[in-house]
Simulated scan of single mutants.
Amino acid sequence: MTAAPADIARARTEFLTIDTPRVEDGAAIWRIARDSEVLDLNSSYSYLLWCRDFAATSVVARDEKGEPVAFVTGYFRPDRPGTLVVWQVAVDHAHRGRGLAAELLDALTSRVAAERGLDAVETTVTPDNTASDRLFTSYAQRHDVPLEREVLFDGGLFPEGTHLPEVLYRIGPFA
């Protein structure tokens, strides 16, 4: 017998909690990003800083032991203070395929909207990252807001010479 989607969602929320990241989570978040095999991996130091300086615009999912198993990091654009930029989204391999990334994204945007308002969400996605494309496209559809795409950084701007373009996804405005 296979579990119905509602049963999976119920089981997931029984054992996972959504929380604000703490500095102590930086190493685990770095490992999740590294093991994703699709994210540009930042230095381990940057994840510690992220958990300190941008905790209010980021979320983690914790397992029953309190260990991070997924995260979304973000920040507000300095020149557009109502625009949340989603920097990275990653889910540990053991927890993929259950809608956890979407649940985290919804939780984060709901929280920041309630705390300081939210006009739009931005992120960048490379053309080969179908999972992120689906995540942000479905997010816009769920929230019934427009989604615009345009190349933000051409691949030739990156020093390694092999980077794909980063396509800006602008979601909003929110009502």
Results as ranks from 00 to 15, higher is better:
residue 111 R to C: 00
residue 73 T to E: 04
residue 104 L to E: 00
residue 122 E to L: 04
residue 77 R to Y: 10
residue 75 Y to F: 15
residue 109 T to K: 01
residue 166 E to I: 02
residue 130 T to G: 13
residue 83 T to I: 10
residue 25 D to L: 01
residue 51 C to V: 09
residue 170 R to E: 12
residue 144 D to M: 12
residue 108 L to F: 14
residue 14 E to V: 09
residue 22 R to Y: 07
residue 125 V to Y: 10
residue 168 L to N: 13
residue 133 D to M: 04
residue 63 D to V: 04
residue 155 G to M: 09
residue 1 M to W: 05
residue 35 D to L: 12
residue 77 R to V: 11
residue 111 R to D: 14
residue 112 V to R: 04
residue 66 G to T: 01
residue 47 Y to N: 04
residue 109 T to D: 11
residue 19 D to Q: 14
residue 127 P to E: 03
residue 44 S to D: 12
residue 120 A to K: 04
residue 20 T to P: 05
residue 167 V to H: 10
residue 85 V to L: 09
residue 29 I to G: 12
residue 66 G to D: 05
residue 7 D to A: 15
residue 108 L to H: 08
residue 74 G to P: 06
residue 79 D to K: 10
residue 163 H to F: 02
residue 118 L to V: 11
residue 152 L to Y: 03
residue 40 D to Q: 14
residue 104 L to C: 07
residue 157 L to D: 11
residue 40 D to H: 14
residue 78 P to C: 02
residue 118 L to H: 09
residue 173 P to H: 06
residue 136 F to V: 04
residue 74 G to R: 04
residue 10 R to M: 11
residue 119 D to N: 08
residue 22 R to G: 14
residue 118 L to T: 09
residue 38 V to D: 06
residue 63 D to N: 13
residue 63 D to E: 13
residue 21 P to I: 08
residue 102 A to C: 07
residue 142 R to I: 01
residue 49 L to T: 04
residue 166 E to L: 03
residue 115 E to T: 08
residue 126 T to I: 02
residue 140 A to Q: 03
residue 84 L to N: 06
residue 68 P to D: 13
residue 101 A to V: 03
residue 59 V to T: 06
residue 15 F to K: 07
residue 50 W to D: 10
residue 76 F to Q: 04
residue 99 G to A: 11
residue 125 V to T: 05
residue 89 V to H: 01
residue 42 N to Y: 13
residue 121 V to N: 10
residue 30 W to S: 11
residue 90 A to S: 10
residue 82 G to A: 14
residue 70 A to N: 13
residue 98 R to F: 06
residue 138 S to I: 02
residue 154 D to S: 12
residue 69 V to H: 14
residue 63 D to I: 00
residue 7 D to L: 11
residue 29 I to S: 13
residue 83 T to D: 01
residue 92 D to W: 07
residue 149 R to S: 12
residue 63 D to Y: 05
residue 33 A to G: 15
residue 113 A to V: 03
residue 100 L to D: 08
residue 110 S to P: 02
residue 151 V to T: 15
residue 15 F to M: 03
residue 67 E to C: 05
residue 152 L to G: 09
residue 149 R to D: 06
residue 122 E to Y: 05
residue 39 L to C: 12
residue 85 V to H: 10
residue 71 F to D: 01
residue 21 P to Y: 10
residue 109 T to Q: 07
residue 51 C to L: 11
residue 78 P to T: 01
residue 17 T to I: 02
residue 77 R to Q: 15
residue 60 V to L: 02
residue 140 A to L: 07
residue 32 I to T: 00
residue 96 R to F: 08
residue 80 R to E: 15
residue 102 A to F: 05
residue 37 E to D: 11
residue 86 V to R: 03
residue 127 P to C: 09
